[in-house]
Nucleic acid binder design. Structure first.
Lengths: 147, 147
DNA sequence: CTTTCTGCAAACGATTTGCAGCAGC
DNA sequence: GCTGCTGCAAATCGTTTGCAGAAAG
C-alpha cells in the first residue's frame, strides 16, 4: 500500500541519502499507529526482532531525515514521535506520577496566542523560533484513581 | 543576610525533614543568580569544592522540598532551576544547535490563553494540570551569527 | 550524642559504537 | 558488486549508590 505517509517518508529518506529498509518502514508504522510518543522498550515490544541498537540507529537516521522527532518527558526515557508535518500539530499531557505522555490537539485560541508571543520574542531576543512545545504536566486519570 | 528566599528555603527544607547545610544554601544561591536553568557541570564550576555526587543528592533533596525543579532541554544534560513560586513564572528559549537554555518572561496574553486551554483539557481528558511548560525551540542569536 | 550529610570510588542503565556478515539499490 | 544496514557484544557517560568519617541539630 502506498499511502501519502509512506511516499513522504521514502522521499525524505532518499533526500537524506538514507536507504529505505523494512525496519525503518516498520518504525514509521509503529509510531504512526500510536496516539502518543513511544519509548524504546515500547517500540521493541511491537517489533521484537529489531535489535535495540538498530532501533536507536534507525530512529536517528529518521530524525535526521525529518521523519521522526525525539521528545523528553519527566522520566529517564527518550520518546519518539513522527515529525509534526507528517501528523497534526499537537501538545502533550505528561503525568508526573507514572511518566505517561499523551497527545492532545492544540486548541486554535492557544495557537494564535503562542504565535503572537513568538513574534514578539523573536524581535526582542534575536532568537529564531523553529517550533514550540506546550506541555501540560500533572496527574493523569489513571493515577488519580489509584491514590 | 536573611532574604525572603533564604527564609522560604529553610522552611521548606525543615518541612521535608531535611537539614540546612552550606552546600544546599550555596546551590540555591547559584541557581538564584543565574537567569537560566543550569547543568551540573555549570553548577560545579561555581562551587568546585562540591562533590558531583553531593550535588546530585542535594538537588534531589531540594527538589523534594519544592525548592528546585529539574527541566529537560534538547541535549543529554539535566538542568536545574528554582521552583517557580520562588521566582517568576517564565518560559524557555532552547537552542537546537548548541543546547543553550534561556529564560523568557511569559507574555500575559499567552498566559491567559494557556489557562483557558488548560481548563478545557482538564474537563475533556480527566487530567489534573499542575503546571505547564512552554518552550520555544530554534536558533539562538549566538549560533545564528556563527553560520 | 544521634542522625543526616559529605566525598570518594564503584555501580548503574539508557544510549552509542566496533565489527563481521547481510540487504538495498 | 559496492555501500550502507543489521545484530551482537562491548564501551560510553550522565547519574546513582555504598561506605566511613564529618557536621547539623
Amino acid at each position: 500500500m502506498l499511502t501519502d505517509l509512506r511516499v513522504a517518508v521514502i522521499q525524505r529518506l532518499h533526500g537524506a541519502n538514507q536507504r529505505v529498509t523494512r525496519n525503518r518502514e516498520a518504525l514509521v508504522e509503529i509510531l504512526s499507529d500510536a496516539s502518543r510518543p513511544m519509548t524504546l522498550p515500547e517500540i521493541l515490544k511491537e517489533r521484537p526482532t529489531l535489535a535495540q541498537s538498530s532501533a536507536y540507529r534507525n530512529l536517528l537516521a529518521l530524525e535526521q531525515a525529518n521523519v521522526v522527532r525525539r521528545v523528553g518527558g519527566v522520566d529517564e526515557f527518550a520518546r519518539f514521535e513522527l515529525a509534526e508535518d507528517l501528523t497534526e500539530h499537537h501538545h502533550h499531557l505528561i503525568c508526573d506520577r507514572c511518566g505517561a505522555v499523551e497527545d492532545v490537539d492544540a486548541p486554535p485560541g492557544l495557537e494564535s496566542a503562542v504565535d503572537k508571543a513568538v513574534a514578539e520574542i523573536e524581535v526582542s531576543h534575536g532568537f529564531l523560533v523553529r517550533h514550540h512545545r506546550v506541555d501540560l504536566v500533572g496527574i493523569c486519570a489513571k493515577c488519580a484513581t489509584i491514590k
